[in-house]
Design a protein around this nucleic acid. Structure first.
Lengths: 155, 155
DNA sequence: TCTATATACTTGTTTACACAGATGCCTAAC
DNA sequence: GTTAGGCATCTGTGTAAACAAGTATATAGA
């Protein structure tokens, strides 16, 4: 039963519910990121590159262009170009300039990239269930709903 | 009403409640991090250095040593040494080797550092209320409780 | 058609992160 | 008092993030 107040050795309870929520979000994210980051690294990926490969897998043969990938990313990344540079260099994806609009570059996943993401499906699913599966589905949905409300005030 | 499924252009709804929760946590954290990161950068700090300064402010005159700071950080940072190097270089804190145990290094906040953190109290509070204040306190506490449960299965 | 502006992406550069291994100091057993 | 082992912190090195500025292509108005 890790309570944040104890975890970080805080003396007084949180006065502001907003602050408590903020810190809990950040800490939980860091915990999950650390776990899945290790998992991805074993496969030679970072969380960001893994997510790009998932986007490319979903896009299929058509591929997806720079700006779309940038939009799709759950956690925004400022430097998508070099992230794709790395994936291309390691053979997980390939670039192809659009013929209709030569500014655009379409990116497709390769066989190698597909194999890597597919191979991660089961570990990821197991990881999710191992770390979050102890909670009832209703509580998880409730959590998601509250987090979405947290983002209502965007900018 | 930003729904994650729409935000990232996902076609099908999430099959796994765990995955939905995971992605929501990550995205919400990134959103908050981005907002407060900008706020801290205006004052010449990163989120990590700001948090260290808060820890040092709470420690007062006694200061706090490397390992304690590392423990206290809400979001773990592997390289606390150079983080403190930077804070020392910019004059926000100072090191002092312990006399009783010369392995330990106590770090104290300086006047300059104190001024910077104090000056951020109000903007941070405003930011928290601006971004999360639209939610009822009960919902925020509920959110915190659910997030803490998320971390029950640790490691 | 020529130019201005917007769009899509790339490159440069500085700074920070991440991991492994090294150093210096303390504690306690022999 | 000497040595073994552990602890607290630092350093080296490669990789990635962050921010700003640049290039090439397209679009739209005079």
């Amino acid at each position: 039963m890790p309570n944040l107040q104890d975890e970080i050795g805080k003396k007084q309870p949180f006065d502001l519910a907003e602050e408590e929520a903020y810190l809990n979000v950040r800490r939980t994210a860091a915990t999950l990121e650390s776990y899945f980051g290790r998992l991805f690294r074993k496969a030679g990926l970072s969380e960001a590159t893994y997510n790009v490969l998932r986007i490319l897998r979903a896009a299929g043969e058509d591929g997806r262009c720079w700006g779309e990938i940038r939009q799709d990313l759950v956690v925004p990344v400022p430097d998508v170009t070099r992230l794709i540079d790395r994936l291309e260099k390691s053979g997980h994806c390939e670039r192809q300039r659009s013929v209709t609009d030569r500014r655009k570059v379409y990116i497709r996943i390769t066989k190698k990239g597909l194999d890597v993401v597919n191979g991660l499906d089961e570990p990821v699913r197991n990881g999710l269930q191992g770390r979050l599966g102890h909670m009832a589905e209703a509580d998880l949905r409730k959590l998601s709903a509250l987090l979405e409300r947290t983002r209502d005030q965007d900018n």
